[in-house]
């Protein structure tokens, strides 16, 4: 019973923070509530025995991602206007209930049994059994760096419309110069022939 109460605390915190992250109008507050979700989930990870993932979730999910969100919101603007939802709220609730019932019907029968088996260390699982995952993570991190460059990119694109017009005008000027020079050279050659 005590174990269930201990688990219920971070679960309730995560759910409350998740609901607030969606409900609040301010994007900054939403990002901070998301950090709360991450921290609660990290506590749950730790209680479930996944100590390494708990540390990574706390540092990356509640730390790095929150900082990135605050940075991006600072660039893009913090407030959001009240807007009509994409899907009517009633339909949204019905779809969510169907999805949850389907998931629960699939997963709940497995939640009654705990199997016991021996397992290799986390490091050997991560580096040997799941080696392909590590390669995928490296590729993903590369994509993330490119994405970060997208956030930090200059305010105007290097080839926006005024610059395109300027380049076109410059080309036209060069062409006219070329035509003028060629016509001049033709005239001079004709004069030379007549002499």
């Amino acid at each position: 019973m005590l174990e269930a109460i201990l688990f219920a605390l971070p679960i309730l915190t995560a759910l409350l923070a998740g609901i607030q992250a969606i409900r609040t109008r301010s994007l900054i507050r939403s990002a901070l509530w998301l950090a709360g979700v991450s921290a609660s989930i990290a506590v749950l990870f730790y209680m479930l025995g996944a100590h390494q993932v708990a540390v990574i979730e706390l540092s990356v999910g509640a730390g790095l991602v929150t900082v990135l969100f605050v940075f991006a919101i600072g660039i893009a603007g913090a407030e959001i206007q009240p807007q009509r939802p994409i899907v009517p709220k009633t339909l949204a609730w019905v779809l969510i209930l169907v999805a949850i019932l389907l998931l629960a019907g699939f997963a709940l029968p497995f939640a009654t049994t705990v199997q016991h088996s021996t397992e290799p260390e986390t490091t050997s699982v991560f580096w040997q059994q799941r080696g392909l995952d590590v390669i995928v993570q490296v590729v993903l991190i590369f994509c993330g760096v490119l994405g970060l460059l997208g956030v930090l990119a200059e305010e105007k694109a290097p080839l926006d419309q005024p610059m395109v017009d300027e380049i076109a005008a410059e080309r036209e000027r060069d062409l006219r110069n070329l035509e003028y020079q060629s016509s001049q050279s033709m005239v001079s050659s004709q004069q030379g022939q007549t002499r």
């Binding site: 990870f45 479930l48 025995g49 996944a50 390494q52 993932v53 990574i56 979730e57 990356v60 999910g61 790095l64 991602v65 990135l68 969100f69 991006a72 397992e119 290799p120 260390e121 986390t122 699982v125 991560f126 059994q129 799941r130 995952d133 995928v136 993570q137 993903l140 991190i141 994509c143 993330g144 490119l146 994405g147 970060l148 460059l149 997208g150 956030v151």
Partner: peptide, 24 residues
């Protein structure tokens, strides 16, 4: 649990990259 942790780390990395690219 170690297999779960390994997959969890992969999901967290992918999640972070999704956030970065989405924000960009």
């Amino acid at each position: 649990i170690n297999l779960g942790q390994s997959l969890g780390i992969t999901v967290i990395v992918a999640d972070t990259i999704v956030a970065v690219v989405g924000m960009a």
